[in-house]
Design a protein around this nucleic acid. Structure first.
Lengths: 220, 220
DNA sequence: ACCTGAACACCGTTCAAGT
DNA sequence: ACCTGAACACCGTTCAAGT
């Protein structure tokens, strides 16, 4: 659908040879970031990967920020919302939340963009919100409580996505252990559980707290 | 204490005239960011505010990232932990959480730093963790549950800090309202509550969910 | 309408030279 | 030990000139 809207201005009968469309730029950016990460993602690099001069990009995207906005909205389509309407509401919600966290843990720099970009500029993001909202409404969550529920979940998900990228020993107090005995002992207890990562344990704890609260909002 | 440790290498009897100490650089950075924001915060600007050449900073901080790490740890001392030991555990926890969110809402670029910086490099941050951990332990939260509780709260707080900076109309669907009827209706209900912001309503909802869960962990 | 190549106004950081 | 000034290797972005 975005392919059509982007190429819509070309004349009928004229062969399609334009490389620089919004979906193609987005796809190239996603590929490039997947290969080398966000730190080395530059407009020059993006242009090179598309076989074009850097300045050519500015005929299609007003700024690098806009390219990242396109990418953010595209990444949202990768979040798993298939549970809604197919599974129990809470199973669908957990599936969505875990998938959402995992995807943004690999796209952390996009978090600051989703968090402040109006939904009118991100149609796929709005689509996701609609699916989740419909799932909550069908479960009996009152309309007035849907936005606070989604925002609270999303805030927790974004913060947890950061946490996934933290080093495993982030809480090791080392030489400072004497000055923080209670916290250091608590960190020590964490080493007993080896099957699940520290980030996963905390995410599960918080997610269940939120799901439980949302459960309490439901009306028959 | 950091004043002493930083100036500790100077000889006794030699007058203190050095401007570029860790606490002074940190204070200057905080002042500069308070005045003009993170977007325009540069090493050149920081050097200018200290009356020094940009390259002089590199005799004290290895990189701009290090300056931001110092700043992050300093900002942590501004978080309100005074409730612990003085108020009921849950009152203290709420007070801490709201203050933590508010401070990082004005220092959003520091979030990605706290989230991944080992505590050994951030003594004030560790101090805060110790105070919160002690508060939870005194409330009866088992040692093994303290880290997941703090991490879940912190993740929620970081995500919520982003949310505070979002424009008020971020969820207004506008022309796309037809394609998202349930979500748009839910957003409409939000306008009824005018005394509290959307971000505050969601933060309160999520925070109470987490506090409640932590309450359930307590043992006598 | 859209591309190229050169240029601009920055960045953070390094380093020889000073004291 | 620590500062200056010049330089380096980049950035994102603009714009005249082409087709």
């Amino acid at each position: 659908m975005s392919d059509a809207e982007d190429a819509g201005h070309r004349r009928a009968g004229r062969p399609l040879e334009t490389v620089l469309t919004k979906p193609r730029i987005t796809a190239a950016a996603l590929r490039l970031i997947g290969a080398t990460g966000y730190a080395s993602f530059t407009m020059s690099g993006l242009a090179r990967s598309l076989g074009v001069a850097p300045s050519a990009l500015y005929n299609h995207a007003a700024s690098k920020q806009v390219v990242l906005q396109w990418l953010q909205d595209h990444v949202m389509t990768m979040v798993d919302v298939a549970g809604f309407g197919a599974e129990r509401w809470d199973t669908a919600l957990r599936r969505w939340a875990w998938s959402y966290r995992d995807i943004f843990a690999t796209h952390v720099p996009l978090i600051s963009i989703v968090a402040v970009l109006p939904v009118t500029g991100a149609p796929q993001t709005l689509r996701m919100y609609e699916t989740v909202a419909a799932g909550l409404a069908a479960a009996g969550v009152p309309s007035a409580q849907i936005v606070p529920s989604i925002v609270a979940l999303e805030s927790f998900i974004f913060g947890s996505a950061f946490d996934v990228t933290a080093p495993a020993d982030i809480f090791e107090t080392g030489a400072l252990a004497q000055s923080s005995p209670i916290f250091s002992a608590a960190v020590g207890h964490g080493h007993e559980n080896t099957e699940k990562s520290r980030a996963d344990v905390a995410f599960e704890f918080g997610l269940e707290a939120l799901v439980d609260r949302i459960d309490g909002l439901r009306r028959p």
